[in-house]
Design a protein around this nucleic acid. Structure first.
Lengths: 198, 198
DNA sequence: GCGTTATCGAGACCGACAGTTCCGACAAAT
DNA sequence: ATTTGTCGGAACTGTCGGTCTCGATAACGC
């Protein structure tokens, strides 16, 4: 609608203190542009700034790079992305979590975000580190599921859980980015079977 | 040593026909620059052209993008990269292949090449397609190993071999690019065990 | 109250780099 | 002998991440 900012009103100046509204406007704009399906690269800094009704300086004063903005927007958004189930059954928890993850990644908006972030991480070392931290939180979630399963005796006590987690997320990212194979619900089931040695 | 071309002599002009020496010089320069450890992004087109003693036009006349040049250089080079073992034992073949793959990826030159190509593929859709083709040849190699194993009865006949292959290569690329976990010889053994359900 | 100070939006500017276009030279094709 | 396509070299364009400057504004410290 409006060409500057998500709405037409002018933000009040906060003088010598950081403008929290501007911060939110930047993150909102970043996420909005990130989820807008495009086939080229991610949004440019100029476009984010313009969309947020903000000067580029205001972005670079608070974030170290474009990737940092995008990743913070993603992190805020994804906190409620994929819940971590705890039903008492490893196979059920695992399959639910994987199926949910695959389904989300299949949605165009989510896919665009993840793809753009991965590309940005490949370009900028600083963003790569932030991306590493983001994936770490997902690893932790999956790790918790399999650890509970092992504590219940559903997995051998000597099993390398990190390896198991990385087999799952490795397959996910590999297929998501390269697209050699599908990421559907059947894949989730089969992967669950394979990981639990059924 | 020399500032233009890998050696000092001037190439002979081939008139109206394509200069094969120039083509090789470009690919050689691309690979040489690709394997040179750098912490920033890949080599620029200008540098490749200068290193090969060639005009940029000569590059863009024969390749559609920088990534296409890099990927052709990589493909030529990697044909003899990781041999496909066939000892008659699935676990031995698998473990050998994975261990070899991991070891190669640990060498700085190889690591720089793979990392740069992955970044380039993330940036440019055309290069992404070529990268997909490259990884497909590696998938095929691993697929052949497990297919032979299944034919010998070392795997269940209903197993999804594509899934198995993608678990392996997924873990490889995930750890290679993100670095959450190691890619050492023990990892190869453990992964082999996991994939063959030992 | 009043000078100081930090942030704000806006825009000019810089440097890197992918990709294009032009040029004179050259030899094969015709 | 003329035409044609490539070659090396270089200037040029456009995009984009990131920096710098500027006037306006209001909180902060005295």
């Amino acid at each position: 609608m409006t060409t500057s900012g998500s709405d037409g009103h002018r933000r009040a100046h906060t003088g010598r203190r950081r403008n929290e509204e501007a911060r939110q406007a930047i993150l909102d704009a970043a996420l909005r542009l990130l989820t807008t399906a495009r086939h080229d690269g991610g949004p440019t800094v100029d476009v984010i700034a313009h969309e947020a009704g903000v000067g580029k300086q205001t972005i670079y004063r608070w974030w170290q790079s474009k990737g940092a903005v995008l990743l913070e927007a993603l992190t805020d958004w994804s906190d409620s992305l994929v819940p971590v189930p705890d039903t008492g059954s490893l196979r059920e928890d695992l399959c639910t979590y994987l199926a949910h993850t695959f389904r989300r990644a299949g949605e165009p908006a989510t896919a665009a975000v993840l793809r753009t972030l991965a590309a940005e991480a490949a370009r900028d070392p600083g963003t790569a580190e932030l991306f590493r931290q983001f994936t770490q939180t997902r690893r932790d979630a999956l790790h918790a599921i399999v650890r509970r399963g092992r504590e219940r005796g559903e997995l051998g006590p000597e099993l390398d859980l990190d390896l198991l987690v990385d087999q799952a997320y490795g397959l996910f990212w590999y297929r998501f980015l390269l697209g050699h194979g599908p990421l559907n619900q059947e894949t989730a089931v089969r992967l669950t079977d394979a990981l639990t040695c059924q």
